[in-house]
Design a protein around this nucleic acid. Structure first.
Length: 292
DNA sequence: CGATTCCCCTGATAGC
DNA sequence: TGCTATCAGGGGAATC
């Protein structure tokens, strides 16, 4: 499930491989992934012969800035991940070279861009939830997709007082607020659970009940866990893989997410899983008390 | 305007 | 064995 660290890893790995490259061809067996423009032929026509001038992350979105005043936006959602390599097309399907790209999770190719050096940029997406949009760069900047995003938690300007201010301006349960992309951009289910465990805060704790000390711990731990995950190229307990098809190595630092029934590494209590707003939520019932 | 619900999709898993 | 029902889940749209 790509969140900020996984999307950042994708951008960092792709960057040297795609900068200054030109799109020469597009293949898809799932045209519904392409939301903009609506017509696939129009999408193909517009993206062909455009050069990748820049690639960057905005929240969980990947944006390729192209020549001709265009920008390609890709959101990987739950199971999407971008891969780079050289596949061959045989009998209606893509054959991956041996190595990580041929591994199971990388087989669900639904969109393949061929670049001018023969390399391919491919979107593997088991559940086909990803979205691909081609925008005029100026329009994208003013779009609600971009404008409604909250600040990036790793930006230099994102200091504690800014964090405190935006969190306290919201109401509700802390985990839900952390996952709200209009509040802070980039945190999802995994890293909200992990940051809250590190900060010893119960995911259901109401914003209004948070103490100054807890806010400070949370601020610090959000940034630390995200940085650590980027350093390790993200987590791959589920579908995510880096663009070369390899697993991220954050797993050994994962303390609660998908660890229901295991012992808390800090206090030994049994990790619990519940639902919050339709999302599974993991926490330690002993070190993350609701009332403290 | 905010809060909630539905929907997109398919592999894995449980139940019969 | 093989079928069917359920679940997971980001975010956008529709609805309350």
């Amino acid at each position: 499930m790509p969140e900020l660290p996984e999307v950042e890893t994708t951008v960092r790995v792709l960057k040297p491989k795609v900068l200054k490259r030109t799109f020469v061809d597009v293949w898809t067996d799932a045209p519904k992934l392409i939301k903009k423009p609506e017509s696939l032929s129009e999408f193909k026509k517009r993206i062909k012969n455009k050069k990748i001038k820049e690639i960057y992350r905005k929240g969980k979105n990947i944006i390729f800035e192209l020549s001709g005043g265009l920008s390609l936006l890709i959101h990987q959602k739950l199971t999407g991940h971008l891969l780079i390599g050289k596949w061959t097309f045989k009998n209606g399907k893509w054959i991956a070279p041996s190595g990580p790209l041929s591994e199971k999770m990388n087989r669900f190719l639904h969109l393949v861009f061929t670049l001018d050096n023969g390399q391919m940029l491919a979107l593997s997406d088991l559940r086909k939830f990803a979205k691909v949009e081609l925008w005029k760069t100026e329009k994208l900047k003013n779009s609600s997709t971009i404008k409604n995003l909250g600040p990036d938690p790793l930006e230099k300007t994102f200091n504690f007082s800014k964090f405190k201010k935006i969190i306290l301006s919201k109401k509700g349960k802390i985990k839900q607020v952390l996952m709200d992309q209009t509040v802070i951009a980039g945190i999802g289910n995994i890293y909200s659970d992990e940051a809250l465990w590190r900060a010893k805060i119960h995911p259901f704790k109401d914003i209004s009940k948070l103490k100054e000390k807890e806010l400070k711990e949370l601020y610090k731990n959000i940034r630390e866990v995200l940085k650590k995950a980027i350093e390790l190229q993200g987590e791959s307990i589920s579908d995510y893989r880096t663009p070369t098809g390899k697993k991220g190595r954050f797993d050994r630092f994962r303390k609660v997410y998908r660890r229901e029934g295991e012992k808390c590494s800090r206090c030994g209590a049994t990790i619990k899983r519940t639902k919050l707003g339709g999302r599974s939520t993991h926490f330690c019932p002993r070190c993350q008390l609701l009332t403290r």
